Simulated assay, not measured.
Amino acid sequence: MTKYARDEFDRVPETSTRQGVHRAVAESRGGRRLAPILAVGAAALVVGLVAFLFLPKLGLSSAGNTVAAVSAEQGGSSAAASPEPAASTPAPSTPAATATPSPSATPSDPPAPTAAAAAVDKTQPVAIFNGTTTGGLASRVGGTVSSAGWKLGTLGNWGGVPQQRSVIFYKGAAQEANAEALGELLGIQTVVDSAEFQLPLVVVLGPGFQ
């Protein structure tokens, strides 16, 4: 209870139609806020319905076209790739071709020494002359020539033009092979064709002969 006396404002009728101003303002603001939300929701519903009804039909046609294009590309690539294995098949035939021709080249070379050996005639007499100051050199070399199967001719000292090196003179082309064979035996590299000697083969031992 208050200590103040009651006045006319304390008497409020039970069936009064009055209401506060703030309630009306609040209701009007709430209605304004809900209107855009409802509009957006309605638009989203319409868009979803259209997408549900029409887009699957469009998607099937485009998907079919893409599947056909992909299958065509795969078929073309497989057709282009298929000839490659066929090109590699003749490779195993190469080893057989390389194995056969090589052995036939070598056997033709050996007959050359046999022909040169057949041309050597050791029955031709070999004259040996000492053109150095070493005594008995002609006899010593004659023993070497005789031991090799050659027929010895005249042995003695050299009385002709002094020679600077050892030389073998031969008479005619028929004695060339004999002169070369004697040069290999005695280590004399100089052989000369000369018609001044009546003997077929003449060995002149020059300075430095070992």
Rank of each mutant, 00 (worst) to 15 (best):
T114S: 14
A105E: 02
A117T: 07
I168S: 03
Q19T: 10
A5C: 04
A79I: 06
L45W: 04
V191M: 07
T89L: 13
G64A: 14
Q163F: 04
Q74P: 04
L137E: 01
L152W: 06
D10N: 12
V161S: 10
P113F: 06
W158T: 01
A81C: 03
A63Q: 09
T98Q: 10
E184L: 12
R23A: 13
A105H: 06
V25I: 13
L60S: 12
S166Q: 01
I128A: 01
K57Q: 11
E184G: 10
G131M: 01
V40C: 09
P95L: 04
G135P: 10
I128T: 02
E196T: 00
G41H: 04
Q175M: 15
V46H: 06
A24S: 11
I168R: 00
V12W: 06
L38C: 05
E84L: 09
L49M: 11
E176I: 10
T123M: 06
T123Q: 13
A24T: 11
G149M: 02
V161Q: 08
V145I: 12
L53M: 06
L201F: 05
A79S: 08
E14H: 15
S166R: 01
L49Q: 05
G76Y: 13
G75R: 15
T98N: 08
A39C: 07
P56T: 08
S78I: 10
V204S: 00
L60D: 11
V46A: 11
S102V: 15
S82G: 04
L49I: 07
A97L: 15
A117K: 09
E180N: 05
V46N: 04
T134N: 12
L38A: 15
P110T: 06
A99M: 05
P95T: 09
T100R: 05
A44Y: 00
W150R: 01
A5S: 14
A112S: 13
V50E: 02
F9S: 09
G208W: 13
G76K: 14
T2H: 04
S146T: 12
L186G: 03
V12D: 05
L155K: 08
G20Q: 14
M1H: 06
T66M: 14
A177E: 04
P200Y: 01
T123H: 12
A96R: 09
T100F: 08
F197T: 02
T154F: 09
T15L: 13
G206R: 01
K122H: 07
T98S: 11
L205T: 00
A24L: 15
L38F: 12
A35H: 06
